[in-house]
């Protein structure tokens, strides 16, 4: 199978993920978007791994672990936001910040 098709096919997934990171307001929704974009990256790495060598799969595993760690930290930050500031809405926080000025 032609790997270029596989590479192009995952791009909509990456688009949705990056769009979600940039546009969404709920902090947990941003982390979900990260997971979506990460899936596109992993699919790309998997495709390249099957083209070249097993090393790609090592690379993919390490990327999965790093982004899982990042998600864990992000969710901790979300809980802290909810507890201390009673909101996980990014725009609302911005609004509150401007009010305090």
């Amino acid at each position: 199978m032609n790997a270029l098709i596989a590479l192009i096919a995952v791009l909509p997934l990456f688009l949705i993920g990056v769009y979600g990171i940039l546009a969404r307001r709920h902090f947990i929704r941003i982390i979900i978007s990260v997971e979506i974009a990460m899936s596109a990256v992993i699919l790309t790495i998997g495709t390249f791994a099957t083209v070249t060598s097993s090393f790609g799969e090592v690379l993919g595993v390490l990327v999965i672990i790093i982004i899982a760690l990042e998600a864990a930290l992000g969710l901790a930050i979300a809980i802290e936001m909810d507890r201390t500031y009673k909101s996980v809405d990014i725009l609302e926080i911005r609004k509150l910040k401007e009010e305090t000025q």
Binding site: M1, L4, V51
Partner: peptide, 12 residues
């Protein structure tokens, strides 16, 4: 680029 490779546990 053609996919031609299967996961190989020992290589990993």
């Amino acid at each position: 680029l053609t996919t031609s490779f299967t996961s190989n546990f020992s290589a990993i």
